[in-house]
Simulated assay, not measured.
Amino acid sequence: MTFKFKSQATSDILMLSAHAQALLQHIGKSSDAKGILTPEEMPAALNALKSLAGEEPSAEPPASRDKQDDQPDEVAVDLRRRAWPLIQMIETAQAAKEPIVWGV
């Protein structure tokens, strides 16, 4: 199952329910099927998401693998990296003074 985050200021973001629920709980929101993040709540949400432990997201592509290496990547994606699109959405929506909603 997926969550769809929407805002008038940005494109929609689709996220797996487990990841979306973990991020919503981290910012103090209910992980119910429907919700809203108002512009007034966004500074606290940004601080909470940016304080997540993990590696800093990077725009650089991962190093290329050897083509003969058939082993799958075993690098787990931490919650901080999964939060990055939501962080960008919140920053854009906050600048435009638009809320973010999900489940509607």
Rank of each mutant, 00 (worst) to 15 (best):
T10E: 08
Q68Y: 08
L46G: 11
A22D: 05
K97V: 14
S7W: 00
I90A: 02
Q25I: 14
P57T: 12
S51N: 15
I87V: 15
S7N: 11
S30D: 13
S51Y: 01
T2I: 14
A9I: 05
L14A: 10
A18H: 05
L79Y: 04
Q94H: 10
A76S: 12
P43I: 09
L52Y: 08
A95P: 00
A33Y: 09
K29W: 10
P61H: 10
A22M: 13
E60D: 14
R82T: 06
S30T: 14
P85N: 09
D70W: 06
P39R: 08
I90V: 04
H19I: 00
M42V: 03
S64M: 15
D32I: 00
S17L: 11
L86D: 01
I100S: 02
R80F: 10
K6I: 02
V101I: 06
E56F: 04
L14R: 12
A93I: 02
P99K: 05
E40Y: 03
T2N: 09
Q8V: 14
P61T: 02
E40V: 07
A22Y: 04
A59H: 00
D69L: 15
K6N: 11
A83D: 04
I13T: 09
L16K: 09
Q25L: 14
P62C: 12
S11G: 15
E98V: 04
D78T: 09
T10K: 03
L14E: 11
A59W: 00
E56K: 12
L86Q: 01
G103E: 08
K34V: 14
I100V: 03
K34Q: 06
V101Y: 00
D66T: 08
L37Q: 02
S7T: 07
I100H: 01
A9S: 07
D78A: 12
A22Q: 15
E91H: 00
P43Y: 11
R65N: 14
A95W: 05
P61L: 12
E55M: 06
A93D: 01
P61Y: 14
S58R: 13
A93Q: 01
S51L: 01
I27A: 08
M42N: 05
A63L: 08
L86E: 01
K4H: 00
H19N: 09
N47G: 05
F5W: 04
L79A: 00
G28Q: 11
E91F: 00
E98T: 09
F3H: 13
I100A: 02
T92W: 01
P43H: 05
K97T: 13
A95V: 13
A95T: 13
L24Q: 06
K67V: 15
W84A: 00
F5E: 02
A63P: 08
A93V: 03
L24F: 04
T2H: 13
A53G: 15
A9Y: 07
L16C: 05
A95K: 14
G35P: 03
L14G: 11
A59G: 11
I100Q: 01
F5H: 03
S58F: 06
R82P: 01
A18R: 13
P85A: 07
A76M: 08
L46I: 10
I36N: 09
V75L: 04
T10W: 12
E55V: 11
R65C: 11
A33E: 12
P99S: 05
L79V: 12
D66R: 04
P99N: 03
D12L: 06
I13Y: 10
W84G: 00
K6M: 15
L16H: 08
G35M: 04
